[in-house]
Write a protein that binds this DNA or RNA. Sequence first.
DNA 1: ATGGTTGGCGCCCAA
Length: 272
Amino acid sequence: MKFATWNVNSLRARADRVEDWLDATDADVLTIQETKCRDENFPWGAFEMAGYQVAHFGYSQWNGVAIASRVGLDDVQRGFNGQPAFGKNGVDAQVEARAISAVVGTKNTDVEPFRLYSLYVPNGRSLEDEHMGYKLDFLDQLHSHITSDLDANTRVALTGDWNVAPYDEDVWDMDFFLENGMTHVSEPERRAFRQFEESGLVDVVRPRHPGPETYTYWDYQRLSFPKNTGMRIDFILASQNLAAEVTDAWIDREERKGTGPSDHVPVVAQLG
DNA sequence: ATGGTTGGCGCCCAA
């Protein structure tokens, strides 16, 4: 069973590429971030035609997360307990469409079912922006929620765009980031991310594809992809029992090429 | 100058 995560930067703009990628990769499950649409303009048909069930959480042109699965999709949860709301200057604060989870693996596979999250962690925007506080709070609350019922029997994978580069080698030039006060690499952000690893969740890709210069995202600007000035910010973190079943994992760098790519590429794990 | 953008959907914001 093969599952993947991908920030597609608008599903409507990327539907053809997503369908082509699912077909070529033969992925059983895909968690999607930045669908950038509401249910009424979600491209349901393309997934159904390809044999995938889909659960979506999106209510505006921003954010939006989904899970597509052909190995079962049960007990869908939109958001998570304790997820903080956000509104500019506290006005009209809402729980944004940044988290959805479901149990996958309930059919058409030998793998034992597990809960799979599709996460779009807020971008901090700048170190002083109120969105940075929101980002840190989001990660803290997510960590509390996940660890509240995490034990040796819990089968869970947290996947998505974490908007954090947890280690120095996860950006192309750490000195540049520090000198310019860039987000994604600050100590508070890294602490917020590392809580998950310290609680026993395992990055299943990094050991197989260590850095440096192993990235999942390249800005559209400044010829970032040809120059390989990228960041590793998309991760699959798995509970230890699930991580032990992973037989392969990789970053599909090829997907950044060609006409009309997302600025992120898929990250994939093979189970069994 | 990190020269070089993309998407939504509005005539700017988010990333």
